[in-house]
Simulated scan of single mutants.
Amino acid sequence: MAERSGTSPGTRQGGGFETLHAADLVSQVGERLVQAIVEGRLAPGQRLVEAELARQMGISRAPLREAARRLEQRGLLVAHPRRGFFVRELSLDEVDDLYGVRIMVESYAGRLAARHAGRKGLDELARRIAELRRLARAGKEAALVEADLEFHRSICVLSGNRRLLRLFDDMAIDVRMVIAMIDHLYDDPMVIAETHTPLLEALEGGDQAVIADAFEYHIGVAWREVRRFLAERPPSGSARDPGPPPVMPPFPRQD
Score class of each variant (00 low, 15 high):
11 T>C: 01
30 G>L: 04
233 R>Q: 11
102 R>H: 04
28 Q>D: 12
254 Q>I: 11
21 H>F: 10
233 R>V: 04
62 A>H: 05
33 L>A: 09
165 L>D: 10
233 R>D: 06
97 D>K: 08
206 G>D: 11
168 F>W: 13
3 E>N: 02
195 T>S: 03
13 Q>S: 04
190 M>L: 14
82 R>K: 15
218 H>F: 10
182 I>G: 03
58 G>M: 14
243 G>E: 14
105 V>D: 11
74 R>V: 00
121 G>T: 13
85 F>A: 04
194 E>D: 07
207 D>Y: 07
203 L>E: 02
216 E>G: 10
74 R>P: 00
138 A>D: 08
17 F>I: 07
124 E>M: 09
137 R>Y: 11
120 K>N: 09
73 Q>D: 05
226 V>F: 06
202 A>I: 06
250 P>I: 06
211 I>L: 05
167 L>H: 14
243 G>V: 12
155 I>F: 12
176 R>D: 03
180 A>F: 03
193 A>F: 00
24 D>M: 07
86 F>N: 14
194 E>T: 01
247 V>T: 13
229 F>Q: 15
138 A>E: 13
50 E>Q: 08
90 L>K: 12
46 Q>M: 04
17 F>V: 10
255 D>C: 00
225 E>H: 13
170 D>A: 15
234 P>H: 07
6 G>R: 15
204 E>D: 03
32 R>L: 01
43 A>T: 09
91 S>D: 15
128 R>Q: 15
118 G>Y: 10
169 D>Y: 02
238 S>K: 08
88 R>N: 14
72 E>G: 04
78 V>C: 07
29 V>D: 10
9 P>G: 03
153 R>L: 12
107 S>Y: 00
20 L>P: 00
131 E>R: 15
131 E>T: 10
52 E>R: 15
147 A>L: 10
200 L>A: 03
105 V>Q: 08
100 G>F: 06
65 R>N: 12
79 A>W: 09
228 R>H: 12
10 G>A: 14
157 V>S: 02
55 R>Y: 00
177 M>C: 00
129 I>V: 15
21 H>N: 14
159 S>A: 14
94 E>V: 01
146 E>K: 14
87 V>H: 11
230 L>K: 12
250 P>T: 08
177 M>S: 01
104 M>C: 04
76 L>T: 04
76 L>W: 15
122 L>R: 11
54 A>I: 01
169 D>G: 03
116 H>G: 06
